[in-house]
Computed example of a mutant assay.
Amino acid sequence: MKKITLMKQVLLTVLLLGMVTPLIGQDLYLPATTKSKEAKVLYTEAMDAFYDVEFAKLEKLNQKALEADPNFFMGYFLQSFSVDKESRKAALDKMANYSGKMNKGEKVLKQFAVNVKADKKYNAIPEMRQLVKLYPKNIFAKTMLAYNLGGEKETRPEALSILDECAKLNPNVASIHNIKGYLLLSDKEFDKAKVAFDKYIEMAPDKANPYDSKGDYFMAVNAYNEAAKSYKKACEINDEFTMSKTKAKEAKWMMKREKVASEVKVLADQLVADYNSMDMAKYTKHYFRGPEFCFVLNGKTTESYSDFTKSVFDNREKYKEWKVEVLDETIQIPAENIAVVSQVFSYSGTPIEGETWGVKGNFTTVWRNIDGNWKVVEAINTNPLKE
Rank of each mutant, 00 (worst) to 15 (best):
E263L: 10
Y211Q: 06
V264I: 13
E189G: 01
E189M: 05
K188G: 00
I179R: 04
V266Q: 13
A251W: 00
I162F: 11
V266L: 13
A248C: 05
E189W: 00
A261Q: 10
F241H: 14
P157D: 14
K265S: 15
K232W: 04
N222T: 12
D164H: 05
N178F: 14
A159S: 10
S186F: 15
G215W: 08
D191K: 00
T246A: 11
Y231G: 02
G150F: 05
L163R: 04
I162L: 15
V221L: 05
E226F: 00
K245A: 06
A193E: 05
V260P: 05
E226N: 10
K180I: 09
F218G: 01
A261M: 08
A159T: 07
C166W: 11
A204W: 03
A227M: 02
E240W: 12
E165K: 12
Y147D: 12
K168N: 09
F218E: 07
V173G: 03
D279I: 03
S277H: 05
Y147T: 10
Y211K: 07
I237K: 03
L185R: 00
K194H: 03
Q270E: 13
P171A: 03
V173P: 11
A208W: 02
N148M: 01
D216T: 07
A251Q: 00
E250W: 02
Y211T: 03
A268K: 06
A223M: 12
A227G: 04
N178K: 11
V272F: 07
G215Y: 09
T242V: 13
A228K: 00
Y275C: 05
Y275R: 07
T246Y: 14
D239F: 03
G151D: 08
Y217I: 04
V260L: 08
E202I: 09
A174E: 12
A228F: 02
A234C: 11
S161A: 14
S161V: 12
A196V: 07
G151S: 10
N170P: 09
L163W: 06
N276H: 05
N148K: 04
I201S: 04
A196W: 04
Y211S: 04
Y211C: 01
V195M: 01
S161D: 15
R257C: 13
K188F: 00
A281P: 07
K168S: 13
D269Q: 12
K249R: 13
Q270Y: 12
A208P: 13
E236D: 14
K192Q: 06
M255P: 10
E236V: 02
K256I: 11
N238L: 11
Q270K: 14
K207G: 06
P210K: 01
E152Q: 14
I237P: 00
W253D: 12
L149W: 00
E152S: 15
A208D: 09
K229D: 04
A167G: 15
A159H: 08
K188E: 00
E202F: 09
L184M: 03
T155F: 09
K199A: 09
M203D: 03
A261T: 08
D239S: 13
F190N: 02
D274P: 01
D187H: 03
P210Y: 03
F218I: 02
A227T: 01
I176H: 09
N170H: 12
F197P: 14
T155K: 08
K207N: 06
P157S: 15
V260M: 09
C166A: 14
N238T: 08
